[in-house]
């Protein structure tokens, strides 16, 4: 019985593997885009100009406090199916929309991580650098940022793990990800024992992808705690 289910699972494993790759693709895209956007928003958060700060703060508040599923629905139904770039129509596939949908809250979180890291550098570092005749910009790039990047790494990796888990939402807007593949497998085989097994496998795959990241994060946290 059980052996038979495992054999079936083996047959389905290419489909499940392709689904997992889809999740990984979305998560990497979302964290990449989210990090670029987030650093930009984070720099604006520290801007001396009030209107810029205001816009950045609004961005952070809106996207940090919106349920991720709502953002994914939002990007899935607001964006068109294809866009015209330089005269040719380029498809805007669902997985890309989900990537953008996850990149929005990721960017808000990256901005907060960045702002927090900058604020966590003691004022005495600024003072020491100022009394060595550094300019404001030099202090930022040579003294503050390098210390921030180290401090940002653990929470950033943590965020990546959370984003990866968030990619499970992609199946709800029709992306053929791991959950979707598992659903298809379960429906096709239509045996309750197999259904349990396939969802356990999904759980295990997510776990074995995210757990090493969490462990590495912990190690880095300890290493960079100066």
């Amino acid at each position: 019985m059980a052996i038979e289910h495992f054999a079936t699972l083996w047959q389905w494993s290419p489909t499940l593997g392709a689904g997992l790759l889809q999740n990984i693709q979305i998560s990497v895209g979302a964290i990449g885009l989210g990090t670029l956007l987030g650093l930009l928003v984070g720099i604006l958060l520290l801007s001396p100009l009030r209107p810029l700060r205001g816009v950045a703060r609004l961005w952070v508040q809106v996207f940090r406090n919106a349920p991720w599923l709502v953002l994914i629905y939002f990007t899935s139904y607001v964006f068109p199916f294809d866009v015209q770039i330089a005269g040719t129509w380029v498809a805007f596939p669902d997985w890309l929309k989900v990537t953008v949908g996850l990149a929005l809250p990721a960017s808000a979180n990256v901005a907060e991580i960045f702002r927090g890291a900058v604020a966590s550098i003691p004022a005495t570092q600024w003072e020491a650098a100022r009394s060595l005749a550094f300019s404001r910009g030099q202090i930022f790039t040579s003294i503050i940022l390098p210390q921030c990047l180290r401090r940002m790494l653990p929470p950033w990796m943590n965020l990546y793990a959370v984003v990866t888990m968030g990619t499970a939402l992609a199946s709800l807007v029709g992306v053929h990800d791991l959950i979707d593949s598992a659903q298809i497998a379960a429906n096709t085989v239509n045996r309750s024992g197999f259904t349990v097994l396939v969802y356990f496998s999904v759980l295990a795959l997510f776990f074995f992808y995210c757990y090493p990241i969490a462990r590495l994060t912990q190690r880095l946290e300890r290493r960079y705690a100066f």
Binding site: Q125, A128, P146, Q147, R150
Partner: peptide, 10 residues
């Protein structure tokens, strides 16, 4: 020179 040294830790 400061009381708390304030070296650049990185």
């Amino acid at each position: 020179v400061f009381q708390q040294y304030n070296l650049f830790p990185h």
